[in-house]
Design a protein around this nucleic acid. Structure first.
Lengths: 166, 166
DNA sequence: TATTGTTATACTCTATAACTATA
DNA sequence: TATAGTTATAGAGTATAACAATA
């Protein structure tokens, strides 16, 4: 089905290896910082940050899940955990009683604020500062291009509800 | 301690967001492929691949851990699991009886071979193909620069043995 | 005493399938 | 019947601390 060579060229390999190395170190450092400063997992941070940006500070579960979590029960688990800590609330949507609206609380926003500086510092230290200014622009352009391609051609079954098999 | 602005510029933010989005989708896709085709977690794949490249197909536990796993017990866990499946062997080093030498077996290499084509295809589809040829080169250059910086300034305590506190 | 690795344990996270309730 | 979400459950992975053995 593929018309491509089955191997990666040295340059392609270099791009892949360096990319994964950086992403895994960055991810680990960020997770550590979030855990230490805000007792948040990376997923929880993403959910909170998303709610913080959302109009009204709230979103439906399904919309919230998008791209952050790959199973519905996984989202329920995290949302419950955040709710128990008082960082979000959950309530049935008035418009569609099947839906649950998740909303960030004042404490939730406080935790976000507490966590942001160190988060930004980690990203800066590990990803931004090593690069010349032009290269940050280049990185932004290149990564955006890839991410747009991924949005346009979503990899098979990333978070979709199970297609009815059999 | 930091002389940097506490915020990220729009370009820097764009670079960070796109980078994490791509890395998380790529990681997820790759993990799925490895699991389906070879019943390997990403960490297990990395360990096997490393052994496959190592001279003699073997390495000491400590050297093997480097950058792949962030705790010693985590490596023991994975090595045990690979050993139970017959993909690696473990034996004490003749040179230093404290050390354990991990070696990839023929079955281990077979699993690697089985998994490679789909792995490469995923990387190609999701990371390489969306980019023009020059941009792959650019990505390789930029990511290599970051990764070299990270090697030179290792983030506090990534995998090192706990510094004696107290 | 320092280093290498394992074990015991506890915890977090994830995914699948079955289930409830609403549209 | 399809959709939104939860629950039950089980499994995989991770980290910390205590431990044994070797240098």
């Amino acid at each position: 089905m593929s018309t491509h060579p089955p191997q990666l060229s040295p340059t392609e390999l270099a791009a892949y290896f360096a990319f994964t190395e950086v992403s895994s170190l960055l991810r680990h450092a960020v997770e550590q910082q979030l855990r230490e400063v805000g007792k948040l997992s990376y997923v929880q941070f993403q959910l909170l940050a998303r709610l913080g940006d959302a109009p009204g500070g709230s979103q439906r579960m399904t919309d919230l899940a998008d791209g952050v979590v790959y199973s519905r029960s996984g989202l329920t688990y995290q949302a419950q955990s955040l709710e128990e800590r008082g960082l979000v609330t959950r309530a049935p949507s008035p418009e569609d009683e099947r839906s649950t609206i998740v909303a960030i609380t004042a404490e939730g926003r406080a935790v976000l604020q507490k966590v942001f500086p160190g988060h930004i510092e980690a990203v800066r230290d590990l990803l931004i500062d090593p690069l010349a200014e032009e290269d940050v622009e280049v990185l932004a352009r290149v990564m955006t291009q890839v991410s747009e391609h991924l949005r346009a051609n979503p990899p098979r079954s990333a978070g979709r509800r199970k297609p009815k098999a059999e």
